[in-house]
Computed example of a mutant assay.
Amino acid sequence: MRYIVIGAGAVGGSLGGRLHESGRDVVLVARGEHAAALRADGLRFTTPEGTRYVRIPVAGGPEDVELRPDDVLVLAVKTQHTADALARWARRPVAGGGTAGEVLPLLCAQNGVENERLALRLFRRVYGVCVVLPASFLRPGAVTAACGPRTGVLVLGGYPDGADDTVRAVAADLEDSVFRAPVVPDVMRFKYTKLLGNLAQTVEALCGPVVPGSAAAELAARARAEGTAVLKAAGTGFAEAAELAALREGAVEPRPVPEGERALGSTWQSLARGAGSVEADYINGEFVLLGRLHGVPTPVNETLLSLANAAAEQGLPPGSTSAEEILSLLSAPE
């Protein structure tokens, strides 16, 4: 199999780097300054083992790749970019007949739960990946993955459910590439659990580290409580947090890295890079949507969603908002 990794940021770069180092055939898809840096010097990949420059073929888009029937597409862009990426890749011809959307497997290695649903409109073979991969992407050409002994946990399964030989073969390649990669029949149950955990990332992006006992921790807990109530009202199953924690135990633990750039979560990184957008519409916004559909108020997540989008649009750095001020705003009478 050849892995076409669409989006070579923190997650995509770590996946592509590790798969390439284990001898798999990989193409990284990137644009702009990031693509230029990858082509010029290779991927500057920092892990607990050290920093090295990994030479991996780079494509700017589907027009640069002649698709083969043994290709696996790995979608690793932020959700706000998913629809565009899917439209660009789905109709590309595959050698031997058919289009990518008709014949190639597509793995959604992304936060949130909307990507798979969007993908299934255009791709027949869609797989979900619950990504637990603490990595950072703060400057063009460079990715840091600071955990060990495994780089991350990637829970895989068919969408909407089930499993097949394709996803099991992908999991075997990932297991051989410094990941823990269990295959489950109900992957979305894990992705909803991860989505609840991602709510704290919006708080840390706005307010800084979520330290136990702090106002930021209280804000994150209130956002998660809302999210949990919404999922229960919607009848949406989700795994217990302990299930994901058990998968991480002894496998994905913080390790010191040489020359590594320290960063918080992916939303924090988006603000730090000045990306111009964040994923909050599909993190906090998912719970806002479900709350409105099922009659559950979500004032905390509505407020965080609005503030996160405003911070991205205004180019504010991470940590620019006071958690105390947000809590005060939420307690003010309407």
Rank of each mutant, 00 (worst) to 15 (best):
R31C: 03
V131S: 13
V54K: 15
N284H: 10
S177V: 01
P149A: 07
H20G: 07
D164K: 15
H294D: 00
F238Y: 12
L107F: 13
C130H: 06
G319P: 06
A216M: 03
R52T: 13
Q314C: 12
T144D: 15
L329N: 14
G97F: 00
E218I: 00
P140C: 04
G128V: 04
L133T: 11
A145L: 07
V65P: 14
A171N: 07
E204S: 14
A246T: 02
G50Q: 13
P105E: 11
S214M: 04
V203I: 02
L329S: 15
R248H: 05
G276V: 02
S322V: 07
V203K: 08
G285V: 11
D64M: 07
G213F: 01
P318K: 12
L86P: 12
A263P: 00
Y53Q: 13
G141A: 09
V300K: 10
A229H: 03
Y3Q: 12
L290M: 09
S331R: 15
V11D: 06
K194H: 07
P299S: 15
E21V: 01
N198T: 04
I4H: 06
V288M: 03
G12Y: 09
F137D: 03
P317W: 07
V72P: 05
R88P: 02
E33G: 08
A242R: 13
L271G: 11
L316G: 15
F179E: 00
R55W: 04
R189D: 03
V300E: 01
A239T: 06
A205L: 03
C207T: 08
A323F: 00
A30V: 03
A272S: 10
A217W: 11
F179H: 05
L327T: 01
E261D: 15
A169W: 02
A215N: 13
A275V: 06
R117I: 04
G60P: 04
S322F: 05
Y192E: 09
R168W: 06
V257R: 14
E114F: 06
A10Q: 07
G285Y: 05
P256G: 07
T193F: 00
R180N: 07
D41A: 14
G148M: 01
A263M: 05
R150L: 05
V203G: 08
L206F: 03
T99Q: 06
G32K: 10
G98F: 02
L316C: 14
V65F: 04
G61L: 05
L154K: 10
V178Q: 15
R31I: 02
E325C: 07
R44K: 11
R224D: 05
E204N: 08
E33N: 08
